[in-house]
Amino acid sequence: MMFVAGMIAILIAMTLILVRAFLGPTVFDRILAVNSFGTKTVLFIAVYGFLTGRPEFLDIALVYALINFIGTIAVLRFFEYGDFTSLGQKREDR
């Protein structure tokens, strides 16, 4: 029962974050919303594993946290420098 309450709260937070991801005026708002949504997904997987009595889901949650961080940094690097290969210098035609 307590896990159901936690899941409902996580789902409400995910809905609000999804609205921000669709509304977001700038691309950084959308990246922030996707990053925050990934953190909520990690929590959701963990709570769902406890709800169904299978705590092995925590391994999936851990891997999802790793992928979420790497993905956010990669997308930020793409938007700041224009591509993934130019190390250090910013794109000129901005």
Partner: peptide, 9 residues
């Protein structure tokens, strides 16, 4: 969590 979602919106 819900407060963070409301603030983000």
């Amino acid at each position: 969590l819900v407060g963070s979602g409301i603030g983000l919106l």
